[in-house]
Structures are given as C-alpha cells and as structure tokens.
Amino acid sequence: MENFDATNTNYTSDLVNNLLSHISPAEQDQTDHKMKMAAKIHAALKAKGWKSLDLARELHLKSPSLVSKWLSGTHNFTMDTLVDIQRVLGIRLLDADLAIAPPPLNVNVTVPVVPSSLKDVIQGPLYKIASQSGGLTGSPVNA
C-alpha cells in the first residue's frame, strides 16, 4: 500500500465539493470548536503524561472509552463536563469571566545616544568668558 501525506494532497472531487456545500457556516463553526476542544484536551493530557485511563480515573468515570469519544472531536460536551475536565487538567477550556484582560502595551523607543565628549573639553584649554549684566546668578534665592 502506498503511503501519502494527506495534508499535502491537493485533491478535488465534485462529490466532496457537493457534500461540503451542504455544510452551513454554523455547522462548520460547531465542528471546528469540537475539534479544537478535543485537541486542547489531548494536548493537556500529553503535557501531564496522562493516558485516557488516568483522566477517566480522576473524573471517576466508569470506562475510559468515554474519554476516547471526547478526544474524537465529535462529542457535544456539557458545561459540567468541561468544568470538570479543566479542573483536573489545570487548563482553561471556558472563558466565562467578565473581566477583560487589557492587551499588553508594547512600546519600543529608540533614542540615538551621542557619547558625551565634555570630559575632553573640560580637560582641554578653556578661556574665561567675562560675566555680563543680566546674568541669572547673584543673591541667594529661597525655597
């Protein structure tokens, strides 16, 4: 049997196109979210080094086959199930908080810095400038 990379196959078919045209945007959105949710749970399991059995045990499920169904990307989760899963896995699957986190403020400022060469000037020859009337200094000022 020949192996091929399905992701790189540019396959078109009238039959497939006809089937896809019957999927409404709302249905596509639901499917996308189910798949993403399953992928997120799978990634969290992998990060914790857990198997389906471990998650089933933590959630006191009778059988790990339910976890397999969740990971298939076709399961219609209930709110209670999602809350339980995110609690035991330590991830966020639902964003029900009202508070909106402010977007991070990134400011890049580039200021050209010219190295001060005043030390050389001070050490070099300097000639006194005669003081003139109207100068700022003189009698002490109070604060």
């Binding site: 000037v121 070099g124 000639y127 100068g135 200094t137 002490p140 000022v141 109070n142 604060a143």
Partner: peptide
Amino acid sequence: SYEFNVQQEQKTNPDKQLVVVFTTVTVMPS
C-alpha cells in the same frame, strides 16, 4: 525653608566653538 546659592561661570574653547557653563548650587538652611 531652604536657601539656594547659585554660582555660574562660563568658559569657552573658541577653536571648537564650545561654551562650557559651570553651575554650582549650594543648599543651606534659611
């Protein structure tokens, strides 16, 4: 209440067209 004594002296390096202003500020109790 504090009192400030400000002294300034101007010097120049005419070859470099530079003027250096030396400012000394002393803070004292009134």
